[in-house]
Design a protein around this nucleic acid. Structure first.
Lengths: 138, 138
DNA sequence: TGTTTCATGCAACGGAAGTGCAATTATTGC
DNA sequence: GCAATAATTGCACTTCCGTTGCATGAAACA
């Protein structure tokens, strides 16, 4: 039983062949992945399977969904021990307008914001747009 | 010539009847408006006209686009004198998970973030999700 | 082994964004 | 005012993404 299988079981999802492949794919990518990206990477697999796998992973806190302002949902693996919903684990994301890739900046947490009376915060999403290190470096 | 017509002309768009109506609609709403909302409000007008008007307004800095994580683009009037792209005018948005409305919190600016080397920030989007004052008050 | 539960694949739907083109309206120059 | 030009609006259509229903297949369980 591999590490990935253990991880999946610990999170409460059955480690099927497909899911292990998808997990591996997400693990080796350093950028957030859209459903379309997965379709291209797994041309044999069905769209729905990929979709539902991502949803399952999200539900079980294996990945977190990222909304980078492109109106396309993307996903990235959670850090070990991350509890996505907790304020201390909410990190910001960077979207490069040049290469169109989105990355997690996990070490940059979203600062706490004091809201007006009556507003109750439950989640937060901060996306910085600009040019990423790879694109600006050249 | 009304104030709205002057505003539109100053921003470089011809103040047609349709555009004045749309501007008024946006002005009297306190929440961010999606294209679908406009369709319902202006059942006589064509979707494309509304769509393109919003795009024109956005281009001319009359409205700013808001991405609240619902994967539906919404729009709200810019504050007078606002230059949406400038860091000092980037305010945060609040999306209520109960009533599904999104509001600008213009007095709450997005805090400056120090990015890793090589990353160049050009824009930022911060959305807090939770329960708004109207929904939590009851 | 038979039953149940879960995962996968196929087909289709619906919503939203976007585009091409024709028709209409406004603006400009004469 | 009138023709020529440019901008705006409306209609039809396409594309893309997210999502769901249903049938099949594989795994777990009794």
């Amino acid at each position: 039983m591999t590490d990935i299988e253990k991880t999946l079981e610990n999170k409460g999802v059955r480690p099927t062949a497909m899911r292990i492949l998808i997990y591996k794919y997400l693990a080796e990518k350093e950028v957030a992945i859209a459903l379309t990206d997965m379709e291209n990477a797994f041309s044999k697999a069905d769209r729905t399977t990929l979709y539902r796998t991502l949803k399952t992973f999200e539900e079980k806190r294996i990945v977190h969904q990222i909304d980078d302002g492109t109106n396309i949902s993307k996903y990235a693996l959670c850090e070990p021990g991350c509890n996505c919903e907790m304020e201390q684990d909410l990190h910001l994301h960077f979207h490069c307008d040049n290469c169109d890739e989105t990355v997690c900046l996990t070490e940059h947490k979203i600062p706490h914001i004091n809201l007006p009376d009556g507003y109750v915060a439950e989640n937060a999403n901060l996306v910085i747009k600009g040019i990423c290190d790879k694109c600006s470096g050249q």
